[in-house]
Amino acid sequence: MKTTEEIFEVLKNRYSEDIIGITNMPPEKIIDVKPDAIFKVSAFLINDPDLDFDNLMILSGLDDANGTKTNQPDGSFEFVGGTLSVVYHIESTKHRHKLVLRVSVPKENPVTESVVKVWACADWHEREAYDMVGVIFNNHPNLIRILMPYDWDAGYPLRKDYKNPEFYQGMKVPY
């Protein structure tokens, strides 16, 4: 059983450039990883016998809403810039320790790497993150919408500046 700080030291020694830092966000400590390194870091975390993170408990996408808020004349608003994040909660069923990883990507080009080849259960989680906030996962085997209709073209519903369309396939959407 290792604490987050101990695992952070291990990762920092091995992937010095790709590990951005550690954030204390009670009750969790979050390790920030660069987007293009998440696959190799994940592969190390599952393969190393002392770490052995064999269980991806949840993968979630979120809109950090940290861009510049610009108000529109019609009362709505938009975030220009800022980041989207993907948070990985992983666990070792053998050593009983847990870890939180986070990858932040710019909203203008939200591209990161898929971890499906490391944890197969990430498949649908990544599709959901793509569907709801629009993070694009490179090397995902089947990155299509999972909850919204396949032909939904009105954007990503869980972004903070999302606006519902007036009509979908001839059906009125607002109340």
């Binding site: 919204m148 519903p157 519902n164 959407v173 109340y175």
Partner: peptide, 20 residues
């Protein structure tokens, strides 16, 4: 009937099946 609890923020819900 009318969208129920999803009437305002339900981006995915049809607000009443009588629309189709």
């Amino acid at each position: 009937n009318c969208g129920g609890p999803y009437w305002e923020h339900g981006y995915h819900v049809l607000k009443g099946v009588d629309r189709v």
